[in-house]
Nucleic acid binder design. Structure first.
Lengths: 349, 349
DNA sequence: TTGCAAAATGTAAGCGCTTACATACCCCGC
DNA sequence: GCGGGGTATGTAAGCGCTTACATTTTGCAA
């Protein structure tokens, strides 16, 4: 009388495959994890039974039994910046080759967010962690240490950092850049930079600029320092504000150092809109060497970072640690100073 | 005599917390999953014991017991394109609010890769899937259907698609764009577009262009159609090749339709480098409205897509399905035609 | 005080898999 | 023909958690 309701399609389990292939679950498991340990005939039987019912080992079960999740986490500020997207893409590729799944967190430059994301990742059982930057809640590294899992800080590379780092020395890079501008005769600088709060990389960049200037007895005048969310727009607005102020009170800066290429591109555009020639009247530098940067007019002088390389190296380091090795973290990368069309000699006073 | 080797720091388990708080593991679990069911005094005891030993429920164990993983997967071509990065970013935010972890796959426009990534995700127990585009191996959708998990196709929205879609009608969008160019008097078109193989969205765009042209009895001449990996460079090279060929044999095209903004930006740059005025001599259109597009000179005429909105809608749809609802997928989005500075009336012959 | 329903807690059975160990089998040399 | 060693398979004990159900405690009316 009663229709048997068709049970909802339930995920097949190893025992179902085992039954179909007339073997034990141990053998099923071996076929998928140590195929060389099972006789070819049986192996085929299991494989086709599995294929027929669309079975594959459920990761949660095997993670539990194996006590390995094969998950690692990447913690970045945002995917909206192509430099981090590239880093993540490269890491994912490297991990996928080794059968490891990458979990992603975008913390939006919020330390609280980063901390809770890391907690969530630990709950998911990540076996390694790559984290952008080292200015995080102290708890963050404590919590990781408590779990004793390998991790690496990316995109930042202080010589005396307590963490394994894959990146470059932000301060040194900006010192180098600033010195080059000094060599070109510039003495009056403007700076447009990302928010320094909670961002060790940006702080280091600013330190780099200041250090290089200090060598010549120079400094950044407060009204020449603009700090705000990186975007082309903020670059434009800051450049305009800086120059309009200069019209009222004294000489213009001759060189503008920007915290990244977005800001620099905005600055170039606005300078041109105000009728200034770049680089004849004003030199402008960026940082990152985005895909677009060589194509803008004039092409942007900037420092080139190989973001995919950062991702790859970070993944390799973590992979080695997962294999039980203890390799030294790779040496710092060296950003390339690429002088294109937005920098030139300081205009004669 | 023998030193007891310090056991490697082992992840604490629920029973450890239970012992410390002098309760059963059931209570520990309840404190974390149904806190209102346990007396405040005990709850605090458990919570502080947990905090003291840094315990939190291990996701693999709870996934198994609960038969829910709280993971969903996003399958995109690549993070290198900011449109997908934005979509993923928005999805991740939406899911995180609901305690759901996003797993990411970048299939690099390879159907095989997409298929095996989806398999891997199913093995991880994803409870939902968002997939860019619908031109995939037929197996891919079959495998998903076999698991009976909700999914949504993003970035594409054919009226008669069998899938739930969140996106826009690529064909219609390019028809509209092309008609506008026809209204401006253009009759001789060039097209620079992404590879059409395995890419339903690009195919639809090309169909849209052809359909609109056909209404006027026009067609794309083969030597005016360039297809290749999207990049500024490919845009430049294609534009140059097209124009150089035109010098030798007959009139120049007056309008170039590009498959996305990268290609269009390249085309504009190269046209300018060749001494053509945009838009007086040549109109050029893009698609996507990248962040940079309004800033190039002249600012790019393009269609604006709200990629974050796509991500949000896809997440909302999936979330509803996970809640057991069966909402209709959202209506197609309508890309905005943004006429900026790279289009104008066709030059007088 | 007693009794009863409701609330709080505990007990224990899985969730789906892997793997140490036990068992069965096979092949050979003597 | 027998024993030994190697190989192929099976048995069953967890991995860390949740939750149905059983048990105990509590609050309160009579």
């Amino acid at each position: 009388m009663t229709e048997r309701a068709p049970n909802p399609p339930r995920r097949p389990r190893a025992v179902d495959v085992a039954a179909a292939a007339e073997v034990s679950t141990a053998t099923v498991s071996r076929v998928f994890n140590n195929p060389e340990k099972v006789a070819p005939a049986i192996r085929d039987r299991v494989l086709s039974a599995a294929r027929a019912m669309g079975w594959m080992p459920h990761a949660a079960g095997s993670a539990l039994a194996r006590r390995r999740t094969s998950i690692v986490g990447a913690v970045i500020p945002t995917l909206d910046n192509e430099i981090f997207a590239a880093q993540v893409g490269a890491m994912q590729t490297a991990f996928a080759e080794r059968g490891i799944t990458l979990l992603l967190s975008c913390f939006n430059y919020s330390q609280d967010q980063a901390f809770s994301d890391v907690q969530a990742m630990l709950a998911r059982g990540v076996e390694g962690l790559a984290i952008v930057g080292e200015s995080h809640k102290p708890d963050l590294f404590a919590v990781i240490a408590a779990r004793a899992i390998p991790y690496v800080v990316t995109y930042s590379h202080r010589p005396d950092s307590p963490h394994a780092c894959v990146g470059f020395d932000n301060q040194e890079a900006f010192e180098r850049l600033t010195r080059r501008l000094l060599d070109l005769g510039h003495r009056d600088f403007g700076v447009i930079i990302q928010p320094t709060a909670d961002n060790d990389r940006v702080q280091a960049r600013l330190r780099g600029i200041r250090a290089a200037l200090a060598e010549q007895g120079l400094a950044i005048r407060p009204q020449r320092l603009f700090e705000g969310a990186w975007s082309i727009d903020f670059g434009r607005r800051s450049l305009r504000a800086m120059l309009e102020a200069a019209v009222r009170s004294g000489p213009r800066p001759t060189a503008i150092i920007c915290g990244n290429d977005h800001l620099a591109i905005g600055a170039v555009l606005e300078a041109q809109a105000m009728g200034l020639r770049v680089p004849e009247d004003l030199s402008i530098t960026g940082f990152d060497d985005l895909a677009i940067s060589r194509h803008v007019a004039p092409p942007l002088t900037t420092l080139h970072i190989d973001n995919r390389e950062i991702g790859r190296l970070a993944a390799d380091y973590l992979l080695a640690r997962l294999d039980g090795l203890d390799p030294p973290p790779p040496p710092p990368l060296l950003p390339d100073l690429i002088e294109r069309g937005t920098t030139g000699p300081a205009p004669a006073a």
